[in-house]
Design a binder for these strands. Structure first.
Length: 593
DNA sequence: CAGGTTAGCACC
DNA sequence: AAACGGTGCTAACCTG
């Protein structure tokens, strides 16, 4: 057995690396009876569901000792790691969703058996301070948390490690974790340190979680589990359609790039080159970016294209085709597993407001006005797509939080809130709707004017009309701003503490509304899970749950999901709107199939 | 080659 | 008096 030593925050950590099967009983003696163990894994990459993905090491640790098990050697090592995972009382991990999916997929240990005993330090960290480093917080990665809470030198070394190993082994970032020899001493050492860091972070972070947020610890662990199950299930991709679509976009792009080249622009994706060519064609560019560069955006190109400029027309079409092909089609195809399923990565606790984020299948940012891209995804065989979203979730949450009777009554009587806002100032419904949302975003007169295509004076008048019509909303915003300036944070009814930058107190209202809305959706997911609905869920998307449900009972299933999700918040009913489509996600957006 | 920043686009 | 909140992804461009 090999051993390494490293001082972490003044205490020596002993890393034991198992080399032969006869050393495994010592591992089990180490773990036996421990109430809490830090756990981590090293893998061939992040693509858990692709062919050839392997788990290479599994590491177990406490505050001053750890054990590294080379499961990639197979046989007894894999068996020992599986046995250890199953028998641990409680385990602490940083971002458990990842490792648990690895253990499930690569070692055959079902996530269901491990989640009940998991403590995830990334959850504790988010509840303590949800801000990333750029936002003035300590950050949420193991590296950032280690830097702030444990040992900055260790954090820096962990950060530099990949580069060191990459150079030593003459390879790239993309390949190093696949090819690094299992017995590389630095690899072993840092693999062994990670579960120790997770273990120590737990001790440091637990007391820092605000008292009012304690109830969220359980909620967030359950939610993380549910989201990991949704990730594992994946979303069926229509590969044939997606490949064809990709090729179609490629052809369109090629044709227009050809035209652009003939008109004198080699690379339309270089804003500088494009600006030069447009100017040489007699156009003057009057807008500039914050750094003083000529601004060539869709607004300018659209105007020029409408005016008949052939280059602008070609550029608009080529850019769209490229974007749709690379960002959507090719990405989906690259991410599909051998069964044709794409596994999104859901971070249930991403934003400062705890809003979730979805990557891999960037479901929150797919084009909504057109079914083409969503048509790529299918319900399972024998099932159809269903979507259940909350009706006016954020505005109802605003009504509930503020207790504004005008707003609450409007919702109770099913009146048109956007029209009410519009009537308060004698403007079009369209402006009323825009202001309803913009007010929650903290927009000022200038911004509202620009967005609505109205004069700043009119915007001021509409804001004043909004505040007069819904006085309690204004009161709430002011109360939150005061709180934010005085303490640096606000606390939501769910017990979540949200830091507010003192130079942007107006964002407090939005944080409150966005975060409360997120927690309403989160709790709905937990209710769905308790009642056995998770296997149907494909993705949670803000105020919506997207599902694949049995065709024969689709309407009933969607209605059931809608009833489970519907809820009351501070006396205000937040209802749902179930919709049933056909085989593809696109069918909910107008596609035939 | 990797990482960060800027710009632009998509969504709620 | 005024204040646009949050997210992801790609490409270009600069720097170490």
């Amino acid at each position: 057995m090999k051993q390494h030593k490293r001082i972490v925050d003044g205490t020596t950590v002993l890393v034991n690396v198992v080399e032969t099967p006869d050393e495994l009983p010592a591992l089990h003696r180490f773990l036996d009876g421990k109430p809490l163990v830090g756990v981590d894994s090293e893998t061939t990459g992040l693509d858990i569901y692709s062919d050839g993905f392997r788990c290479r090491l599994v590491q177990f640790g406490t505050d001053d000792e750890s054990w590294v098990v080379p499961v990639d050697k197979g046989g007894e090592f894999r068996y020992a790691a599986r046995h250890a995972l199953k028998n641990i009382n409680r385990m602490v991990l940083q971002n458990a969703s990842y490792d648990l999916q690895v253990f499930d997929r690569a070692l055959g240990v079902p996530m269901e058996t491990l989640w009940p005993k998991v403590i995830d330090t990334s959850i504790l960290a988010h509840l303590t301070d949800p801000r990333g480093v750029k936002e003035g917080g300590v950050g949420l990665s193991l590296e950032d948390l280690t830097r702030h809470h444990i040992d900055p030198d260790v954090a820096d070394e962990v950060k530099g490690l990949m580069n060191v190993l990459r150079l030593q082994h003459k390879t790239t970032k993309a390949h190093i974790w696949k090819i690094i020899p299992l017995d590389d001493p630095q690899y072993e050492l840092y693999a062994g340190i990670d579960p120790v860091l997770a273990f120590r972070l737990y001790r440091k972070l637990m007391p820092l979680v605000p008292g009012e947020s304690k109830n969220l610890i359980r909620q967030e662990h359950e939610l993380a589990a549910v989201c990991s199950y949704i990730e594992r299930t994946g979303f069926l991709l229509d590969i044939e359609y997606t490949e064809e679509l990709s090729q179609r976009f490629r052809d369109v792009e090629e044709a227009h790039l050809w035209t652009a080249r003939e008109l004198g622009c080699e690379n339309i994706f270089s804003t500088e080159q494009l600006a030069d060519t447009l100017e040489s064609r007699g156009h003057t560019i009057t807008e500039f970016t914050p750094t003083g560069k000529r601004k060539v955006d869709e607004a300018l190109l659209g105007t020029l294209a409408a005016g008949g400029d052939e280059l602008a027309q070609a550029v608009v079409k080529a850019k769209k085709a490229r974007k749709w092909r690379t960002t959507w089609c090719d990405r989906f195809l690259a991410g599909a597993d051998s069964e044709g399923r794409c596994h999104a990565s859901i971070n249930p606790l991403q934003a400062r407001t705890a809003r979730m984020s979805i990557t891999g299948i960037p479901a929150q940012t797919l084009p909504a006005g057109d079914a083409t891209i969503r048509r790529c995804f299918l319900s399972d065989p024998g099932q159809v797509m269903a979507s259940v979203d909350y009706q006016a979730q954020e505005l109802r949450v605003l009504a509930a939080l503020s207790g504004d009777q005008t707003m609450i009554r409007a919702f109770q009587r099913n009146e048109d809130l956007h029209q009410i806002t519009a009537d308060a100032s004698g403007v079009d419904r369209k402006i009323g709707k825009m202001v309803n949302f913009a007010y929650v975003y903290g927009s000022g007169p200038r911004n509202i004017a620009e967005q609505g295509g109205i004069e700043v004076d009119v915007a001021r008048k509409v804001i004043a009309g909004f505040e007069k019509k819904y006085p309690k909303v204004k009161e709430l915003s002011q109360r939150l701003q005061k709180q934010a300036v005085a303490t640096g944070y606000i606390t939501t009814p769910f017990g979540r503490r949200l830091p507010v930058d003192r130079e942007r107190p107006y964002s407090a209202l939005n944080y409150m509304v966005q975060s409360s809305s997120r927690d309403i959706t989160a709790q709905a997911l937990l209710r769905l899970h308790e009642q056995g609905g998770t296997r149907f869920v494909r993705l949670p998307i803000h105020d919506e749950v997207l599902a694949s449900v049995p065709q024969e009972k689709a309407v009933e299933a969607a209605g059931w999901i809608g009833r489970v999700m519907a809820t009351e918040f501070k006396g205000v009913y937040i209802g749902t709107d179930p919709e049933v489509g056909g085989r593809s996600w696109g069918s909910l957006y107008g596609s035939d199939y």
